[in-house]
Amino acid sequence: MKKFQNVTIKGTKDGLTLHLDDSCSYEELKKELDHKLTESARSREDRLISVKVQVGNRLLTNEQEEELRELIRHKKNLVVDSISSNVITKEEAVKLKEENEIVSVARIIRSGQVLQVPGDLLLVGDVNPGGTVIAGGNIFIMGTLKGIAHAGFYGDKEAIVAASIMKPSQIRISDCITRAPDKAQDDEKREMECAYINDQEQITVDRLQVLMHLRPNISRLEGGY
């Protein structure tokens, strides 16, 4: 009689973890998963149990992932929490690379213009009043910021905005927004500053040197990505 070895079920304090072998065929894996979940259902108590599925180095199609979800959901009191894999598609890899790279742009962002990048932005130039720069990550401006800068566009509250001369009309980081500085502040000389979200969930503008303490992992240059 064939031994079932492609599916391992482990109980945790949060529910069940299913380890699915990545070397067998998908159809073989489905059959064994169905068999083992049916067998284990006999000993489970009558309550909802969260299930995490780990498929190792197997890349599932959307259809296969939905099949596994349906198979598990049809078993009594099982709820699929997540399905995780060690591999990703080429499109996902490209997106991940874009979100973690620095895009360098040398230009002036004039009134009415919007520059947006998926990852970090290094702008060599000014952002004029009425101009807007948006980044999924951090924004570094080698010039004067007089317009709008929105860092952490996709929700990254660790993102920062830095500029050689900081005179913004507005700064946004994730879902936090600052108002424009008053005229007295705007007339002051403001050089090499950065904006970040502090412990009170508010945006603070401070000297650039504080970054090494507040965001020690902000540099991706040492060791590469």
Rank of each mutant, 00 (worst) to 15 (best):
P129A: 09
A162M: 15
S174Y: 07
N138I: 02
R110A: 09
K189E: 10
D126P: 04
K189N: 05
R190L: 07
K95D: 14
A162N: 11
Q116K: 15
C194P: 00
I173K: 06
R172Q: 12
V127G: 08
V114H: 06
G125N: 07
K146Q: 15
S111N: 13
I148H: 09
A149P: 06
E191F: 06
A93V: 00
M166V: 05
R179S: 15
A184I: 11
T132I: 14
I165N: 15
K97C: 09
G147W: 10
G143S: 00
K95Y: 05
V94H: 12
L115K: 13
C194F: 01
E193P: 01
A180W: 02
E91N: 08
N138R: 10
E188A: 04
V94W: 11
A162Y: 15
E99N: 10
N138K: 04
G152F: 13
F153H: 15
I102D: 03
T178N: 04
I160N: 02
A149R: 06
L121M: 05
G136L: 09
D120S: 00
R110V: 03
G130I: 05
A135N: 01
G125R: 05
R190H: 09
V105M: 08
K183F: 04
V161P: 02
V161R: 01
A180C: 11
P129T: 06
D187A: 12
Q185D: 02
R190Y: 00
K146V: 01
H150W: 15
N128S: 10
I173Y: 03
S174I: 10
K157T: 12
G152Q: 04
G131S: 06
E191N: 10
E98G: 13
V94K: 14
Y154C: 01
E188D: 01
F153R: 13
T144E: 09
P168D: 03
A162H: 07
V161E: 07
A163C: 12
V105T: 12
P118R: 07
Q185T: 15
K167H: 11
I177C: 05
F140I: 10
E191P: 03
G143V: 08
T144K: 14
A184F: 11
D186Q: 08
K90H: 11
A106Y: 07
K157M: 15
G152T: 03
G137D: 07
D186A: 14
D175M: 08
I109P: 05
N138T: 05
Q113T: 02
L96A: 12
I148M: 08
C176K: 13
P168Q: 02
S174H: 07
A106T: 14
G136R: 11
A159Q: 09
L145G: 06
I108W: 08
I165P: 01
K146P: 02
E191S: 13
E99Y: 00
L122F: 03
T132M: 13
R172A: 04
Q113W: 13
D156L: 10
K95N: 09
D187E: 15
M166S: 04
E99H: 04
K95W: 00
A93S: 08
A135C: 06
M142F: 05
N138A: 10
E188S: 02
